[in-house]
Design a protein around this nucleic acid. Structure first.
Lengths: 160, 160
DNA sequence: GAAAATACCGCAGAATATGCTGGTTTAATT
DNA sequence: AATTAAACCAGCATATTCTGCGGTATTTTC
């Protein structure tokens, strides 16, 4: 028994299904079947298998940032003064419970973090940043405020 | 007649629907209706209206980065030497047609860009970066390779 | 070349989506 | 405060879709 999970190879049809679903997560099974030149039954079987095998992690509605008043976006680079376990634990706990932080990546050697912060306006941003720098262990930080979104690609690249 | 588009106010039920859909984009309408204490018909009416009014932009399947072999992630900070229109145009054209660049934000005063690059391995990254720095007008750049994803929140914050 | 496994299709019953109607509540106007 | 108008909701009916099952064809394995 191998260490890696059984990972069946995907044929052209599987890839076409994945691509279709990541572009339209609510397509009906009959239409999906038409699109990949299959009848509904085997198409559904494949979708179920792709879900069970973990290729599809979930389905989500994308909501409008503008309409819901969360269109101000900032990237924040944060350095911790040490990579000490308890410092990181405190930092992570704060990040996780701050809903405006929508993404947090540990980068480079373990002291630096890149956050993506989504807020409605500068006032809210100032408050989030204020709380952030008060976390013990937080050293330098730098804000990159987003002026214009040049490209955004939800979805992975699929070579058909 | 006002300049802003008609934007009806959302009540508690609308917000509950949006929240449910951004957590499970494939929930059936009857189950969604149960969840928000409505009968199916008015629930579907509301969903349709939320879509028409632009609160819901689309539905997408989230695919596994690991399973599809695109699990290496880098943030790249790039500065252009001038904000000259033609320099930016060339830059943007290159970004848009490079599938590994999944996100590109113009930040700060207009010379700096933050890219998010998704690749399968370091070889592919080296190639993407090589092509990037060859674009005329590209000055300094710095790579933040992601070691660990601390937090990732797809979906917006909804106060019920 | 035979046997087994796999993938596909069509069909049928169950579940769901969706348009329509009528009744109720809420809000606006006089 | 009464009347009108508007919005909203539930229930029903029809059309569509989902989904499991059995049968057939194709591919793989021995």
């Amino acid at each position: 028994m191998s260490l890696t999970a059984k990972s069946r190879t995907l044929d052209r049809i599987d890839l076409a299904i994945l691509d279709a679903l990541q572009k339209n997560g609510r397509i009906s099974n009959v239409n999906l079947a038409k699109q990949v030149n299959l009848s509904p039954s085997p198409c559904l079987d494949r979708v179920k298998r792709l879900e069970a095998d973990g290729f599809i992690e979930g389905y989500y509605a994308k909501l409008s940032e503008q309409k819901l008043n969360q269109s101000l976006l900032a990237h924040v680079q944060v350095s911790l003064v040490t990579s000490n376990t308890s410092v990181f634990k405190t930092f992570k706990e704060h990040i996780v419970k701050t809903p405006q932080v929508v993404e947090c990546d540990m980068v480079a050697g373990g002291y630096d973090y890149l956050l993506k912060v989504r807020v409605s306006d500068m006032n809210e941003y100032r408050q989030v940043l204020g709380d952030l720098v008060d976390i013990p262990g937080v050293g330098t930080h730098h804000t990159y405020m987003v002026i214009e979104k040049v490209k955004e690609d939800t979805g992975l690249r699929i070579d058909l």
